[in-house]
Computed example of a mutant assay.
Amino acid sequence: MRKTYATSTSIAGLLLLTIVGCSSAPATLQQGPDAEITKDGLVKVDNSKLELSYVKPGVNWRQYTKLYFVPTKVTNDHPADYRAPRIDRQTDGAFATYDLPQESLDKMAVQFSKTVQDVFNSEQPFELVSSKGPNTLIVETAVSDIRLSAPVEKSRRSYNSMGTTYTQNSGSMVLLAVLKDGQTGDVLAKAADRAMGFDQWRQNTKVFNWGDVKTVYRRWVTDFKNALMTAAAEGTP
């Protein structure tokens, strides 16, 4: 939901994101005959902070002292049932689009890597490495299904007509993560979460939204770090 006002120069933004926790109860693996298990033997986690997560039972998380983050992939890909927002050619302009340009996708990928380097610094109990090996946890991440609340900045009519666009939120995107053993390549965990925009009316600008992207990246990576530390302390999730 959005409104456009012809009052001053507007800049459409990237995504305004936040990781949404699902429950305050402790995360536990499902048990019994009704437990949801994937083809690779991962069991669904109840009360996960992420919308969907699966973990391999019995993993000794203490052995992983090194982390290898594979460069993040950020794309405009959507699921097969995705329906693109309707473009109002009169209001939005003839060239309006909801797909981020490649330069923005690349910038988001680089920023994720920077956030990882910042959060997993020398004061943390994990060593960041650049290759697979013993005692190494491989972390593969991807960002996709990006859904903006307003067309991309330079594609909108208001961008060149001194207009200002306000949105109730800036949009959402899906973050996917897969954890693997650095030696065997065995999949140890999978997670998926949709990051949503804050539910408040505000001017949709690149400056504000980009700052929020960095804030949410930091929150997600920090939560991931804390989860690893908890799992290592307990031995298993």
Rank of each mutant, 00 (worst) to 15 (best):
19 I>D: 13
61 W>G: 06
31 Q>G: 05
180 K>E: 13
133 G>V: 00
32 G>C: 07
188 L>H: 01
18 T>K: 14
201 W>H: 01
28 T>W: 14
205 T>A: 14
132 K>N: 01
221 V>G: 01
5 Y>W: 13
215 T>P: 03
58 G>C: 04
28 T>A: 11
14 L>W: 14
107 K>N: 09
58 G>P: 12
179 L>V: 05
110 V>D: 15
27 A>E: 14
47 N>Y: 12
233 A>C: 01
169 N>F: 02
94 A>M: 11
233 A>G: 12
170 S>Y: 03
214 K>Y: 03
67 L>I: 11
12 A>G: 15
81 D>W: 09
85 P>M: 00
156 R>K: 12
66 K>W: 08
83 R>M: 09
212 D>M: 15
8 S>R: 15
233 A>M: 08
67 L>H: 12
158 S>Y: 02
29 L>A: 02
97 T>H: 05
174 V>G: 02
188 L>N: 00
40 D>E: 15
217 Y>F: 13
100 L>G: 05
129 V>D: 06
152 V>L: 02
53 S>P: 04
171 G>T: 02
162 M>H: 15
31 Q>L: 10
175 L>A: 07
107 K>Y: 11
135 N>L: 00
135 N>Y: 07
6 A>W: 12
18 T>E: 07
174 V>Y: 11
15 L>P: 12
43 V>R: 07
228 L>W: 07
22 C>F: 07
17 L>E: 04
80 A>Q: 11
51 E>W: 15
65 T>E: 15
142 A>N: 07
185 G>D: 04
98 Y>E: 01
230 T>H: 11
192 A>G: 14
170 S>C: 11
58 G>I: 04
89 R>G: 00
74 V>L: 07
39 K>R: 10
3 K>I: 13
161 S>M: 05
197 G>E: 02
232 A>C: 08
16 L>D: 15
74 V>Y: 14
